[in-house]
Nucleic acid binder design. Structure first.
Lengths: 277, 277
DNA sequence: TTAAGTTACCCTCATATCGAGATGAACTCA
DNA sequence: TGAGTTCATCTCGATATGAGGGTAACTTAA
């Protein structure tokens, strides 16, 4: 449903007054993930003003609603997410490095009191990015950086005990936790792990993505067999990496992402057994 | 992030003026699904006013923001969804029949122009309900009914061609389509099919839920073996149904939902093969 | 009462997938 | 040069799945 259905459109616009409605602000926040040095990192910005001044937070900001006529300036939610990413980190938007990221909606967080100033509904997004340059603070951010997820002391997936996740502003620890759990699941049944790699990658590199996101080591032989057996996951480039592994070994072959949208059968993570109940 | 971080809280409240912001309305819509006569049904209401007057739409409405101080009246998003369900259908809220429904957030729809009157951000929810009585129209709804999903002529999952889904107001056909796909997926790896059944059910009844939601027949013997072999999916009550099947057969045993939150291994739907690319 | 048809529940069997381990060759580093 | 590491592939047993069969319990129609 929608605003007062007892008025039709023209009547509505003639009588429109924002004060008729409880004021609500809509923002987008982004959980942007990447792999650096074999570890999962999340993009954070340091808040430049109260509340939570000086604390780290997810990048995000207002959705440009475009006024009652929804003319120039109105933007869709994914566009707002990309714009905020670009503004607060200095990374160039579409066409640049941000053109290669996977972006999807994560969920919407709107509990009363989640922002002490007013009612704020935040539409959180999840982004998977290949290795990107260090961000430069911009917009409302006093600082911006890729932060190792392990360094945040987040509660484990599904574990929402209070007190264990206090280091991010607002409810962003919860949003990040949900984003991580979504990412872990997405790697199981979609080929999105390739979004963390560049255009070409090796099977061991792809495996390191899974190991970083899932936080556990995988059987190299079985992973190799599995990736190559799932239709459309990766396709060979015919080329070989110009160097072997850092500590020895033969030169791995190069692959690029295939055309599958779902992995069948899925790559199930071993630790799933513990989460069943 | 949040509204203008250059002001702290007290300063913000002293200077607060709704006109400082582009007006945005936040609503909740609900895709409520149930099984009736072996067919999947969705709860729809008929709009009583323009725009889309007389058309069917998903039940939903405004989120009570609670004003700038977020005092009494501010409600969380799931609470708003339950309230709208109750208001527009006459079904009693928590404690009544609605107390037994599963409710989860589906996604947020905020494209400019999705509501011709103003910028409306809708947080869609998905509800799984056991068989409920016929709704009574209330609130802004001129009518309310459980409608067979097959009768809506929706596009198949993933198929978003324009022109095939024109019979619901706003972008509700798209929201319903997304909700159906979510429901189909959830039945694979969660025990939520039991949410469509009452407190006690038989394996054939549970199978009919899967068949109704997935839209395909399942192998009765393999389904039976599978359900009983997945730990925590169902547990026996020891009792037996008081009648056999409608067209004969022995009396099936009764079960209730187990304590598992995830099904392992999952029940994969056969048709999944076609959706991979 | 009888016969025919339907269904729950259990079973078998071939195939597919998975976890764990082993092997050999290629490569790095000391 | 030698030791250690890693890629790529293979084997083997355990498990899961799809397809089909069989028996007994039950309904409906004759």
């Amino acid at each position: 449903m929608s605003p007062d259905p007892r008025r039709d459109e023209s009547e509505f616009l003639a009588n429109y007054d924002p004060r008729d409605y409880d004021p609500v602000a809509v923002t987008v926040d982004v959980v942007a993930l990447t792999i650096r040095d074999g570890a999962l990192h999340v993009l954070l910005v340091r808040r430049g003003a109260a509340p939570y001044e000086g604390m780290w937070a997810l990048p995000g900001g207002f959705v440009q609603a475009g006024g009652p006529l929804q003319g120039t300036g109105a933007e869709d939610l994914p566009d707002a997410a990309v714009r905020e990413l670009a503004e607060e980190t200095g990374l160039s938007a579409k066409g640049g490095v941000l053109g290669r990221v996977h972006l999807e909606q994560l969920g919407t967080y709107g509990s009363p009191g989640r922002d002490p100033r007013m009612r704020v509904i935040s539409v959180a997004h999840l982004a998977f990015a290949p290795e990107l340059p260090d961000p430069e603070a911009g917009g409302d951010a006093a600082d911006a950086a890729w932060v190792p997820v392990d360094a945040l002391g987040l509660a484990e997936s599904g574990d929402q005990r209070p007190g264990t996740t206090r280091r991010l502003a607002f409810d962003h620890a919860r949003i990040l936790s949900d984003g991580l759990e979504r990412a872990r699941g997405k790697l199981e049944y979609t080929p999105l792990a390739t979004a963390f790699c560049g255009g070409e990658f090796t099977i061991p590199e792809l495996r390191s993505v899974y190991e970083a996101v899932w936080g556990e080591e995988l059987h190299a032989g079985n992973f190799h067999r599995k990736v190559l057996s799932v239709p459309g996951f990766v396709e060979s480039t015919g080329a070989t990496s110009d160097r072997g592994g850092r500590r020895g070994g033969p030169r791995p072959r190069l692959y690029r992402a295939g055309d599958a949208r779902l992995l069948h059968p899925a790559l199930l993570r071993p630790s799933r057994e513990e989460e069943i109940r």
